[in-house]
Write a protein that binds this DNA or RNA. Structure first.
Length: 557
RNA sequence: UGGGGCGUAGCCAAGCGGUAAGGCAGCGGGUUUUGAUCCCGUCAUGCGAAGGUUCGAAUCCUUCCGCCCCAGCCA
């Protein structure tokens, strides 16, 4: 997808105008996660937007940890977030930034507000403050502490800072308007007491600025030109602007909002994701079924596929729910173009070629990719006994079934045409082996009789292969809106979201597959070696996504 | 009769007064040693609804309807 064929979204247009009219000379954006959890597909949209805009307009994008609440944050998440952003393929401007880098400056600015009579220490408890705040439809009332003198406020704030006040005993509030229709303007709390250590600043502080007091000012300090956030912060913008206008900040950032990503068949809220982990519905935050970037990475999603997906869904201000089908399309699209091909038999059925010499083995060669000749060819050992897929053989079938049928022939992918002559069954009547003859004159060409088999099936040598385990993932939820009102999202968990197949047989080259490297298992889907499970002898392969399957569709008609 | 936002196809989304782009999904067909890919065709007389302005309206005006966000010392 080229940029000239893709129409610009509202933020691109807006930045273009800012640049053209000289309101902004240098584009500077930032991606500002709070380090309180793992990044997920929703964050990817914001990352691609912020870093993408900076790239497009020759600007910069900072990575900033919005760490104003030590109660929720951990260093572990800082590391995970850096890893995920890098993995997606973006490089942040300079060192990673922290809101906490600016705690001293923020404190000075709080003093500035107090001295200007625009902030005061309020002794109302959280509950009292709620009552004074009013409701959505009724204005609030002024706090009885609202008119304290500058000197008194300075002294009190000093005591807050020195730890002489208890948590919840008082807070610092901006003095704006308790009757404002926008509740964010009803004397918002800008500093609160939290007597706890911070992952970056240690024990230096026992008071911490609120999001509202920190965010815009940090934007200004970092010289951010366009501070892009999601729609729910729209109501905070008047407060954002009020603070910028009332403080001697070094630059004038502007906030813009876009709609966050909603994906059907998916939940993304941290609380729910945590519940899936804690209650054992999945294996961890990086379980391949999770919509976290670490889970998707382990599942086999590529950075390119995620970036393309974000490009495809666009950026607007309207709430929308994107079909996971689009995500599935983008990973198939990327892997089809770039993943090496391989063969793997999931449920092996033995095939004996009665006219192929016992003990003989030849090495066949197969292309690494149907059109990419830069991907190396692979070696496929071929012999008298092979495995094919159980479901690729039937004793009888109609002409729609284009696979191996008793008394008919089929092409072995990258190899010979074989003819099914007889079936061997066990005592239970199950087919355990198919005896075939092989047309040794059909390698790389049609059979001499000119009759071209209509089917092609995959196979693997029965004596020279890689034993492996395959994990077939399906959608985690079978309800398109597990999040939607009223229902318990856990009731929507798809009971068949994971099928583990043991005793699968893969072509020998897969023994050295690297974790996360995507392969197409021909006629089946895209897979990658799991980074957590499996051994050198018996690797585990995760199915990233199946191939489109018009045969299954046909059968369901 | 609190404030703020958003409504274009099954889904996402262009469009900014000149007669509804594109993608995903779907449907039909062609190529194919992957029932994949690829290629071709098809898919809104209609833009939340109703009025109005205009030669002309998804675009402007009016009214109405629906959905989302806000009453953390969370972000």
């Amino acid at each position: 997808m080229t940029s000239e064929s893709k129409p610009a979204h509202f933020l691109q247009n807006l930045i273009r105008e800012d640049l053209a009219e000289g309101r902004v000379s240098q584009v500077a954006t930032r991606f500002p996660p709070e380090p309180n959890g793992y990044l997920h597909i929703g964050h990817a949209k914001s990352i691609c937007l912020n870093f993408g805009l900076a790239q497009e307009f020759g600007g910069t994008c900072n990575l900033r940890f919005d760490d104003t609440n030590p109660a929720k944050e951990e260093e572990e998440f800082v590391d995970a977030i850096k890893r995920d952003v890098s993995w997606l393929g973006f490089e942040w401007n300079g060192e990673a930034k922290y809101s906490s880098d600016n705690f001293d400056q923020l404190y000075q600015w709080a003093l500035h507000l107090i001295k200007a009579g625009k902030a005061y220490v309020c002794d109302l408890s959280a509950e009292e403050a709620r009552h004074y705040r009013g409701t959505l439809k009724e204005p609030g009332k002024n706090s009885p502490y609202r008119d304290r003198s500058v000197e008194e406020n300075l002294a009190l704030f000093e005591k807050m800072r020195n730890g002489e006040m208890e948590e919840g005993q008082c807070s610092l509030r901006a003095k704006i308007d308790m009757a404002a229709p926008n509740i964010n303007l009803r004397d918002p709390i800008i500093y609160r007491i939290k007597k706890m250590a911070h992952h970056q600043t240690g024990d230096k502080w026992c008071i911490y600025p609120s999001y509202d007091f920190a965010h815009g000012q940090c934007d200004a300090i970092e010289g951010i030109s366009h501070s892009i956030c999601t729609l729910e912060f729209e109501d905070h913008k008047p407060l954002y602007d009020w603070l910028i206008e009332n403080l001697p900040v070094p630059s004038r950032p502007r906030q813009y909002e876009f709609a966050r990503l909603h994906l059907n068949y998916t939940v993304v809220s941290k609380r729910k994701l945590k519940q899936l982990v804690d209650e054992g519905h999945v294996d961890g935050w990086d379980d391949p079924r999770m919509p976290t970037l670490s889970g998707m990475r382990r599942r086999g999603f590529t950075p390119t596929s995620i970036r393309n997906f974000c490009e495809m869904i666009g950026v607007t201000r309207s709430d929308s729910v994107v079909d996971v089908g689009m995500l599935e399309y983008s990973i198939r699209d990327d892997l089809d173009k770039n993943a090496p091909r391989a063969m793997c038999v999931m449920e092996p059925l033995k095939v004996t070629l009665k006219n192929y010499p016992e003990g003989r083995e030849e090495m066949l060669s197969a292309p690494g990719h149907p059109v990419r000749d830069d991907l190396p060819a692979r070696e496929l050992p071929f012999g008298r006994t092979l495995y094919i897929e159980k479901e690729d053989f039937r004793e009888e079938a109609n002409k729609k079934y284009k696979r191996l049928v008793l008394g008919k022939k089929v092409r072995l992918r990258n190899a010979y045409v074989i003819f099914a002559e007889e079936v061997v069954k066990n005592d239970a009547g199950e087919i355990v082996e198919v005896i075939c003859s092989v047309d040794l004159d059909s390698l790389g060409k049609d059979p001499a009789d000119g009759v071209k088999p209509k089917g092609v099936i995959h196979w693997v040598s029965a004596v020279n292969n890689v034993e492996c385990e395959v994990r077939l993932y399906d959608r985690l939820f079978n309800d398109s809106a597990p999040d939607a009102g009223g229902k318990n999202f856990l009731d929507c968990v798809n009971p068949d979201n994971l099928q583990i197949l043991k005793g699968c047989k893969a072509e020998i080259g897969l023994a050295k597959a690297a974790p996360e490297q995507g392969y197409q298992f021909e006629r089946n889907g895209y897979f990658c070696r799991d980074s957590k499970y499996g051994s050198a002898e018996v690797p585990v392969f995760n199915r990233t996504i199946g191939l489109r399957d018009s045969w299954a569709k046909e059968q369901n008609k």
